[in-house]
Every structure is written in structure tokens, then in C-alpha cells.
Amino acid sequence: MDRFVFLLSAGLARGAVLALFALSLVIVWRTARVVNFAQAAMAVAAVYAAFAVTAATGSYWAGLLTGLAAGALLGAIVERGLMRRLPAHAPLPGIIVAIGLVMVLQAGLAIAFGPEHRPMQPPFSQRPFIIGGIPVLSPYDLFTLGAAAAVMAALALLFNRSSLGLRLRAAAFAPETARLLGVRVPRMITLGWALSCAAASLAALLLVPTELGLNPHAVDLLFVNAFAVAVIGGLDSPAGALVAGIGVGLLVSLVTGYASASAAPLAVLALMTLVLLVRPGGLFAPKEARTA
């Protein structure tokens, strides 16, 4: 029972990061109808920027802000410079360009910074609180959960309650109509990309201090799992990303703890296959008519 509680709490923090990254994929899918396969590479580039600033100033928070800004900027640049030039409503070119971008960014980072792991220090202790003899969440885990929850809540407010959110959604779902109604659709799409990449960068910034260190591939596994999460939850559904993110985080933690680390990727694959067999559009799939 102790072990179960411990594994649950460990999985919760990982799940929050997963959910946040998956949410970033959902945002870009909703605004631009593209799955951004380059999300991990762009996020890791932003983390390098954060790392450089933290190293120069000694302040974690300056680095964090730089990372978020770099992520948003990179998202906007990629949308303006590349994605906009692609034919609309064909998913393939977007995916292929994103794959090309992954290769360029990761190879470029490896050439610029070398393959070494660069350890990053978390801003809070990773020493868990001991409750009833069981180590549960650490202060850093709480920070991760808090940051992820705050960002998700802010995004939900933005999309559902503000007029900017309304315009963002209109630009995504009915670009022609939105244009006629005076929404600057291209600007909205750029904004969606910027928001999405900033969220992904935050997830990466939260993850890397718990890993061995920063390297060009540090976020790869997070992306793969987060993509699985987004697909399981339904690419159109922020709620799906949240639920599936926590779910997959717990699943990976429990499978690793009770079975073996090797079985974790297989468990994710099995869950994804199962969900897609029952609901081909993911758990929180919208009505069919919304197909792009």
C-alpha cells in the first residue's frame, strides 16, 4: 500500500508535465490543424536559451522567463516562416516539414553545444515530504503541479472566456467566416503557435531538471508520450489532454514500479491501441462533422 501511494504521487507530477505538453499539441492542432512533430525540438531549443541565461545571471527565474519567451518567439517564427507557406487542409506537408525541422534543430543544437549532458538545477528542493513514513510529492513536484495547473487554467480562461479566445477559436474552426467577420485569421494562427510553443517550453523546462541533464534529445520521450496522450485524449480536446496526461503518467509510474521499466512503452502503446480501437478520435472526440 505504501508503495502504491508512493508510485501514485510520483506519477502525478510526471503526469502533470505530460498533460501540459499534450495540451500544447492540442492548442496548435486546434488553431492550425497541424500536429507539430517539431514541438520537442523547439522546446529543447528554448530550454537551451533558458540554460544560457540562468548560467549567465545565476537566476532560475530569469532563465524561465527567457525560455518561455524564446519558445513563443520560435513558435511564431516557424509559423510565419514555414508553416504558412504550406497548402492548407493537407496534413501531410505540415508533418513532413516538422520532421525536417526536428532534424535541423537537433543537429544544429548538437553542433553548437556538443552532445554533453548539462545538469540543470531545480529552483526548489526535490526532497519529498514524508507523510506517514511514505515519501510523497517534493516541493519541486508541487511547483510543477502548480505551474502546470496555473497555465492550463489560464489557457482555458483565454480560450473560453475572452474575446481573443473566441477569435482564436473562430480562426481555427471557420477561417473563411471568421475572416468575413473581421478576425485577422493569420495573426490568430501565429498567436496560437506562439502560445503552444511557450506551453511546450514550460513543460520541457519543468522536466529537464529531473533528468540527467540538458541535451538535444532531452525532451524526445516526453514528446512521444505526450503525443500518445493527445491522441488518447482526442487531439481537439484540452480536457482530454489533461485526463489522459495524468492517466498515462500514473500508468507509466505503476507499470515501472510493479512490472518493469521495459514494459512501460509497451503499456502506453497498448493503451493507445485500445482507446483508438474503441474511439478512433480519442476519448474526448468531438462530433464527426467537425472534421477539418
Binding site: P91, V231, L235, L276, G281, T291
Partner: peptide, 9 residues
């Protein structure tokens, strides 16, 4: 499955 879902799988 539609495109991105298949790519994910």
C-alpha cells in the same frame, strides 16, 4: 484513423 492519429500510433 485520420492522418495524425495514424502517425501517432
Amino acid at each position: 484513423l485520420r492522418g495524425p492519429y495514424l502517425a501517432g500510433l
